[in-house]
Computed example of a mutant assay.
Amino acid sequence: MNEAVHVAGTEGGAGPDLAELLTEVARGDQDAFAEVYDQIAGPVLGLVRSVLRDPAQSEEVAQEVLVEVWRTVAQFQPDKGSAMSWVMTFAHRRAVDRVRSAQATSDREHRAALLDQTPAFDEVTEAVEARLEREQVRRCLRTLTELQRQSVVLAYYRGLTYREVAELLAQPLGTVKTRLRDGLIRLRDCLGVTA
């Protein structure tokens, strides 16, 4: 390893520190970035993995951090802190952003699932309207005479023929037909139905 660093142009076998390498990268030295990469890739991946726990996402975010270092290296100011702190700040921010993004996605999916379980507004409205209509029909049925109400209920709610209604009520067929007609007219008027 010392030979590789020495070949990179350092004296005494000790490699340039990260701050010096970042300065060289800022000047466009791609070989210096290869050394930066070697120094920071492991620590960056380690930090990101400690936040994310998912190996695949950790590698992706670590790669994003390395690209970010390459893109923004000119912003590094050695007098404001160490180079490794600067890099690790990128890594931590990216990892936390990924966690927040994943949580936001999970929350959106959860809300969408809840919306799928909630009946549509129209279904609720229809159910309420149907209940109100049933109540109104019941109220209007109470305004009919006993024979009219029985005739209407048997013919329209039980599905009996006029003849079956007449036999069941022990009434002449003509009387049942008249009571049904009169009962339906009264129901129509009570319900506000226009002919």
Rank of each mutant, 00 (worst) to 15 (best):
A127I: 02
V128E: 15
H92S: 09
Y162D: 05
Q150H: 09
P78F: 05
A112T: 10
L160W: 00
Q77G: 07
L132R: 12
V128H: 09
D116H: 09
E109W: 06
F121Y: 09
L144Y: 00
V152R: 00
R111K: 10
E126Y: 06
E129V: 11
A102K: 03
Q103A: 11
Q117G: 11
S85P: 02
D116F: 06
G159S: 02
Q117W: 07
F76V: 12
E135R: 13
S151I: 01
K80D: 15
E123D: 15
L160E: 06
Y162C: 01
A104G: 05
S106N: 09
R138S: 15
E109D: 13
D97N: 13
R94V: 01
L160P: 00
E109A: 13
G81R: 08
E146H: 06
E146D: 15
R93K: 08
V128Q: 12
T105S: 14
P119F: 05
Q136T: 06
Y157K: 07
A166E: 01
R138T: 13
E109F: 07
S85W: 04
M84Y: 08
L160S: 01
R98A: 14
R100K: 12
F76Y: 15
Q150A: 15
A104S: 11
E133K: 06
V153P: 02
L132H: 10
R131D: 12
H110I: 12
E146A: 14
T89E: 08
G81K: 07
L144R: 00
V165C: 01
R131C: 07
R158V: 06
A91Y: 03
A120K: 08
P78V: 05
R108A: 14
G81L: 12
F121L: 13
S101M: 09
M84K: 11
V165L: 00
V153C: 03
R163L: 04
E129S: 09
V124E: 00
H110Y: 13
R134F: 07
A83M: 07
R134A: 14
L144N: 01
M88P: 07
T118F: 09
S101P: 04
A102E: 10
A155C: 04
Q148E: 15
V165W: 02
L154P: 01
P78H: 07
H110M: 11
A113G: 13
V128T: 11
D116S: 10
Q148Y: 04
E126M: 08
A120F: 08
V128A: 13
R94L: 03
T89K: 10
A91G: 11
Q77F: 05
T161L: 00
R131I: 08
L154S: 02
R138F: 12
V96C: 03
R163C: 01
R134H: 10
P78R: 10
G159P: 02
T143C: 04
Q150K: 12
R98I: 02
D79K: 07
R94T: 02
W86L: 04
A113T: 11
V152S: 02
Q136W: 06
D97E: 03
G159V: 03
V128W: 10
V128M: 11
E123F: 04
A120L: 11
V96P: 02
L144T: 02
R138M: 15
R93G: 04
C140Q: 04
Y156M: 11
T143E: 11
G159I: 00
R139L: 11
S82A: 13
F76S: 12
Y162K: 02
D116R: 12
Y156S: 08
V137H: 07
A95N: 03
R93F: 05
D116E: 15
H110R: 12
V99E: 06
E133G: 05
D122K: 08
R139Y: 09
